[in-house]
Amino acid sequence: MFEWILSALILVGAFFTLVGSIGLYKLPDFFMRLHGPTKATTLGVGALLIASALYFSFNTDQISLHEVLITIFLFITAPVSAHLMAKAAIHIKLKQVKRTQNIIK
């Protein structure tokens, strides 16, 4: 039973990590690409880290929670770096895809 939960968490995490990178690969402009890695990848890696914490807590004789630290760190830093990258992209006047509403010049 426990193995099933762990496997599900690992597969879901890996899937979301992949979705983030697919978004990075196939979306048409920078501002749209920004969405993939900031959301999907963060959740994906978060799920993998939770799976790792569970795995080490149940398979060794001590509780392992330090993976939570990376999870929290990623959840705090991902939006910050996304914000700065977007700010930089606006600053150097990166082109946006034509169908964008309210294009920033």
């Binding site: 690992i10 995490g13 983030g20 920078f30 890695p37 799976a51 990376i70 990623l74 992209a89 150097i92």
Partner: peptide, 26 residues
């Protein structure tokens, strides 16, 4: 094609590297 795209790609690469390391650990 632009510099921010490359920065974003690097950002994604390091997060994916974390995922890979966690999986290797398990």
């Amino acid at each position: 094609p632009d510099v921010p795209d490359r920065i974003l790609a690097l950002d994604t690469l390091y997060i994916n590297a974390i995922a890979l390391l966690v999986l290797l650990g398990m």
